[in-house]
Amino acid sequence: MAFIELNHVFKTYSNGVTALADVNLQINRGEFVFVIGESGSGKSTLNKLLYREEKVTKGNVMVGGVNVSKLKNSNVYKLRRKVGVVFQDFKLLPKLTVYENIAYPLETYGLDSAVIREKVMDAVERVGLKDKIRSYPNQLSGGEQQRVCIARAIVNRPKLIICDEPTGDLDPKMSREIMDVIEKINKELESTVIMSTHDKEIVNRMKKRVICIHNGVVVSDTEKGKYLEYEDN
């Protein structure tokens, strides 16, 4: 059984916009998958369904054997502890230091401070930010802030890492660095990575599985694929 399975998934928002229509996907454990498509194609909705920020209108979303679409609101946090999310806009807390930002989820889980320290130090080492742990987010470059966001996402060793256009706000050099970090984590932690992106250069360079969504429909799904610019005929 695949780690992630989407069966006949439909998502229609309350304003009537259909973001996804009959999406069927299977993603295996440890896979690295790019999800591409123009703005408004449904990439972000797909991500949000995986970490239950949105609910499906029809169909089933299974993550690690759990039917996410049937998860109760009060139990969503259990899923989120197994899923790390990396955002384009980092979503860091400005009043907390790098260390505190990364430790934040673990503190709210009620873990012991020694355990938290060990996990946080492991995460900062993996993203190469060991010398910046006392800095505040506004003292860091965009690339560094994104590394903090990645460290926070991986600090609890999640089985799934969802990256929502993580390089969208970064220059090409920084983007490459970030992609190297994520690829390394994918190999070392054997976490499944699903990354939505617009970055043609990255997709073409990394030669991973590429799923292309257009108008809410999966139009292509290729192993070691390239960036595909799909246009209406």
């Binding site: 920020e53 009060s74 946090y77 899923l79 989120r80 989820p105 609890n156």
Partner: peptide
Amino acid sequence: RNEISIMRLVGTSN
């Protein structure tokens, strides 16, 4: 609200 949304995203229980 930003803080709350981050707490929810990182798996903090309600």
